[in-house]
Design a protein around this nucleic acid. Sequence first.
DNA 1: TAAAACAATAGACCATAGTCCATGGTTTTG
DNA 2: CAAAACCATGGACTATGGTCTATTGTTTTA
Lengths: 120, 120
Amino acid sequence: MKIGELSERSGLSRDTIRLYEKNGLISSSASQSETNNYREYSDDVLLQLRFVSSARTAGISIADLRDLMNAFFDSCDPSEAEKVLVAKTVELKERILQIENVIAFLDTALEKVRSGLDET
Amino acid sequence: MKIGELSERSGLSRDTIRLYEKNGLISSSASQSETNNYREYSDDVLLQLRFVSSARTAGISIADLRDLMNAFFDSCDPSEAEKVLVAKTVELKERILQIENVIAFLDTALEKVRSGLDET
DNA sequence: TAAAACAATAGACCATAGTCCATGGTTTTG
DNA sequence: CAAAACCATGGACTATGGTCTATTGTTTTA
């Protein structure tokens, strides 16, 4: 598919997709036609983009995602790939703990606010 | 305490602390001395900064943190404060789910990599 | 075939978050 | 006292992530 359809189906703008491609998060091939330089994207790219989109929302940087995609898709050194994946998993689990701390804080804040509301 | 000590004890740079103060995440009072314009920070500010620091690591923006701090510390409208806190809690829980999705993806990637390693 | 829609590229632009630097004033300390 | 350490302020600077625009070329479609 071409970038327009990919944009449509991934929910990402063309610009964002091109940015991701420039940063090595996805890749494309040349169009079948020889007369233009349109890029052709496979269905796999759509899946990758959906993952990238989730990961970006989760706060993973483009640079880190590039490492992950490399580890996953075209790693020539599996043990290195494993290292990257494990490290990222650990980091993400720590991030979850951090977020849970914040949630706990917000909960106590909520209790306080609500007890204040009760006093009316 | 003055900003140097606060920086020391919070692990944040003076610049970052000033940035946070400028953005309304913390507040300070004028120094006791009338001859300078040094700012004086209470112990509470240290606690707030530790929370802010965690929250920043967890990916919460300064703008959102300002809303949260306002809701918590000087909300004149408790029901509005409650709304802000609940909304943020929901958002954070969603973010955790997102991160868990990414972790799941990494796990499958890990399995793949490891099975590849086994084949050697 | 001509207009509309699509594509590629490059560069400008924006917001966010934070650091760094220069200047000038104030305390601390040796 | 004098130097060193500290403080405030403002502005420049960096990096990240993304959008917008202009230009030019290619398909599609009416």
